[in-house]
C-alpha cells in the first residue's frame, strides 16, 4: 500500500490531490497514519505505533483503521497492491 504520487500532506492536516484537484482535511491521528504509510510501514507496524500512543484497544483500532483506508482508497489517495513481501 502506498500513498499516491504527488499527494501532498501538510502538517496541519491538509491534503491536496493534484490528479483530481480535490482538497481534504485530516485529523491528527489521520496525519500520523498517512506519514507511517509514506514511510512504507505495514499495517502491523502502524497498529503497534498507535496502540502504544493512544488509549484504545486493538479491535477498535483495526476496525477504524480499515475504515480509514477504505475512504483513502475511495478518494484515490492511496494505491493498494498485493502484499507479496515475506
Amino acid at each position: 500500500m502506498k500513498l499516491r504520487k504527488n499527494v501532498a500532506v501538510s502538517e496541519v492536516g491538509l491534503i491536496f490531490n493534484p490528479v483530481t484537484g480535490e482538497s481534504f482535511s485530516v485529523n491528527p491521528i489521520g496525519v500520523e497514519i498517512l506519514e507511517l504509510i509514506r514511510e512504507e510501514k505495514d499495517q502491523n507496524q502502524i497498529m503497534q505505533v498507535l496502540l502504544e500512543k493512544y488509549s484504545t484497544d486493538q479491535a477498535t483500532l483495526e476496525n477504524d483503521y480499515a475504515d480509514f483506508i477504505d475512504i483513502l482508497n475511495h478518494h484515490h489517495l492511496i494505491e493498494i497492491h498485493e502484499e507479496t513481501k515475506d
Partner: peptide, 9 residues
C-alpha cells in the same frame, strides 16, 4: 483516542 477521519473540503 480519536478515530482517524478525513473530510473533503
Amino acid at each position: 483516542y480519536e478515530r482517524p477521519a478525513i473530510k473533503k473540503l
